[in-house]
Simulated scan of single mutants.
Amino acid sequence: MSDLTEKVIIVTGANSGIGLEAAKILSQQGAQVILAVRNRQKGEEAIASILNGNKEAKVEVMDLDLSDLNSVRTFAQAFLEQYNSLDLLINNAGVMTPPYERTKEGFELQFGSNHLGHFALTGLLLPLLKKTSNSRVVTLSSIAHRGASIDFDNLDGSKGYKAMKFYRQSKLANLLFAKELDNRLKQHGLPTISIGCHPGITSTNLFKFGKRDSSNLLKTLLKWFFQPVEMGVLPTIYAATSEGLRGGEYIGPDGRGNRTGNPAIETPAANVYNQEMMKKLWDTSEELTGVVYDFQ
């Protein structure tokens, strides 16, 4: 990894798991890293853990609740007022298989937080990304996108809710967004690139399943069969820093089923990049969030 001194990086959900590990690694390379988190106390604890290992780290906590579009707008405005460049936005934060719940705007929580919140955030920060040389956006998806579909007639879950089905839908949306964003950036001749990635099967606090802690059995399985966060973060770091990427790639572990291993360019599930669905998702996301991207 090259020196990242003077690079400005936002990592959403950086108070734990892959987000925290990514913030540690990127700050070790000299970057100014903003931990965009919902819980400020946990964010401050994450800062302390980073500084404990690297007293020279340039890290900062900023409040961001992706389930509240007013919070997303407030964060973006505060960031634009404080910084004049943005080299890297890592859309990492996520919620997995919670009980049925809606966001402040009435969206199903997983689709609203995992996809719509990041869609709005990226669009609001696009003016700064466009101004920053060699900037990029990295969005985390999941192997759970395989076999998933987007039910445009039930995005709020009011016509029925299955936690894993809606999680898979949100992760498919993340992947389609990452690809469509790169397509549109290229169509408008912009140098910013967008890349998707996923951590395989990694032991993180996503497996707390909403507000309920995992069972002791599951925790044991996580330790023995899932890769540690130090490995799970590598696709994110590769997507964020590899100079050989041109945008539009999907990075994941290279092991069997892409569940574990070292980072590599991966081929998504067959026919996943459906142009009609990608356009419909984009148009729907702009309509639902009220954030219209300015590529000019």
Rank of each mutant, 00 (worst) to 15 (best):
E6N: 05
I9C: 02
S16P: 04
S16C: 15
S27C: 03
S27Q: 12
A31H: 05
A31R: 06
Q32D: 13
V33R: 10
I34W: 12
I34H: 04
N39M: 14
R40F: 12
G43I: 01
E44D: 09
E44N: 14
A48Q: 11
S49V: 08
D63Q: 14
D68P: 01
L69F: 15
N70W: 15
V72D: 09
V72C: 07
V72F: 08
R73H: 06
L80Q: 15
L80G: 00
Y83V: 01
N84M: 06
S85L: 07
I90W: 10
N92Q: 08
N92T: 13
G94K: 12
T97D: 07
T97L: 05
P98M: 02
E101Y: 03
T103V: 13
T103R: 07
G106I: 10
F107D: 02
Q110N: 01
Q110I: 04
G112E: 13
G112D: 09
G112F: 15
N114E: 15
H115C: 03
L116G: 00
A120E: 10
A120C: 12
G123R: 08
L128Q: 04
L128H: 02
L129R: 04
K131E: 15
S133K: 15
S135T: 11
S135G: 04
V138F: 11
S142T: 01
I150K: 09
D151C: 06
N154V: 10
S158P: 02
K159R: 13
K159E: 11
G160V: 11
K165V: 14
Y167I: 08
Y167K: 01
R168D: 03
K179G: 02
E180A: 07
E180W: 04
L181T: 04
K186E: 04
Q187V: 08
Q187G: 03
Q187H: 03
G189C: 11
L190W: 04
L190P: 02
L190C: 04
P191G: 14
I193K: 15
S194I: 08
C197E: 09
H198M: 12
S203F: 13
L206N: 11
F207A: 09
F207D: 06
K208H: 11
K208A: 03
F209E: 08
K211T: 12
D213Y: 05
D213T: 13
L217G: 06
L218E: 05
A239W: 15
T241C: 07
E243L: 09
I251Y: 02
D254I: 13
R256Y: 08
T260K: 11
N262P: 02
N262H: 14
A264V: 03
A264F: 07
Y273E: 05
Q275G: 04
Q275R: 02
E276Q: 09
L281G: 01
D283T: 12
T284S: 11
S285H: 14
Y293V: 00
D294K: 05
F295N: 03
F295R: 08
